[in-house]
Computed example of a mutant assay.
Amino acid sequence: MKPLRAAAYGTFYRLPIGVRRWLVRRAVPKYIVGAVCLVRDSDAGGERLLLLRQPPGRGWSLPAGLLERREAPIVGAARELHEESGVRLRPEDLRPAVPNAIVHARGWVDVVFEASVPASTTVFKVDGAEVYEAAWHRLDDLPQLTRATAKLLAYYGIGPLADQPGPWAALER
C-alpha cells in the first residue's frame, strides 16, 4: 500500500499547478479551504519552526491539508498535523494565528493555527509517501521553501518574502 500511495502522491505533485488545482476543484465544490499549522519549538523560545519536505521534494512546507466536509478548521489542522508529522495535539492546544484566514487568488482559503511544542520530547513520524521528512528549522536560517509556503509565512513576518511588498504588507498599516 505504501509504494502505491507514494507513487500516487509523486504523480500528483509532478502535475502542473493548474492541473492540480483543476483536479482538487473537481473534488471540492466552489472553493477550497485548507488548514495550516505553524508549530514552533518551545525549547528554542519559538525560534525554530516545524517544516516538512513533501513530494516532489523541491522545497519545504508547513503541515497543512484540505478540510474534510463539515470539518471545523481547528479540528482539520490538528488532524493534518498528526497525519503528516506524527505530532498529536488536541484542537484546543492550537490557537488561531493572526491573521487567522489567508484568502488566496482563485478561491483558495487557508485557516492558520499556531502551537508550541518542545522539540526535546517531540517525535516525528512520517509515512515516506505524502511526507518525506519532518524537521525543525531556525527562523533565521530556513531551508528552501515552496513558493506557497514562503508567501504564507510572509504574512507572519517570517521567511525570505517577509520584507518584500505583497498583500501581507497591508496588514501592517
Rank of each mutant, 00 (worst) to 15 (best):
K2W: 05
L4K: 06
L4T: 15
Y9S: 11
Y13C: 12
L15F: 04
P16K: 02
I17S: 08
I17M: 13
V19H: 07
R21V: 11
V28E: 12
V28K: 09
P29H: 10
V33G: 01
A35E: 14
L38E: 01
V39K: 09
D41W: 04
D41I: 09
G46E: 00
E47K: 10
R48V: 05
L49N: 02
L50H: 08
P55S: 13
G57K: 07
G57D: 15
G57V: 13
G57M: 13
S61M: 05
S61D: 15
L62N: 12
L62P: 14
E71G: 03
A72V: 04
A72K: 14
P73D: 06
I74L: 09
I74M: 08
V75K: 07
R79A: 02
L81W: 08
S85W: 04
L89C: 01
P91K: 03
E92K: 02
L94F: 00
V98M: 01
V98S: 04
H104G: 01
R106A: 14
F113H: 09
E114T: 02
V117L: 10
V117M: 05
V117R: 07
A119P: 02
S120W: 09
T122M: 06
F124H: 13
K125A: 13
D127I: 09
A134E: 01
A135K: 11
L139Y: 01
D141G: 08
D141C: 13
L142K: 05
P143Q: 08
Q144C: 11
R147S: 13
T149N: 03
L153D: 07
A154L: 03
Y155N: 01
Y156V: 10
G157T: 11
G157V: 12
G157H: 04
P160A: 11
D163E: 14
G166D: 05
P167F: 04
W168D: 08
A170Y: 12
L171S: 09
R173Y: 04
R173E: 10
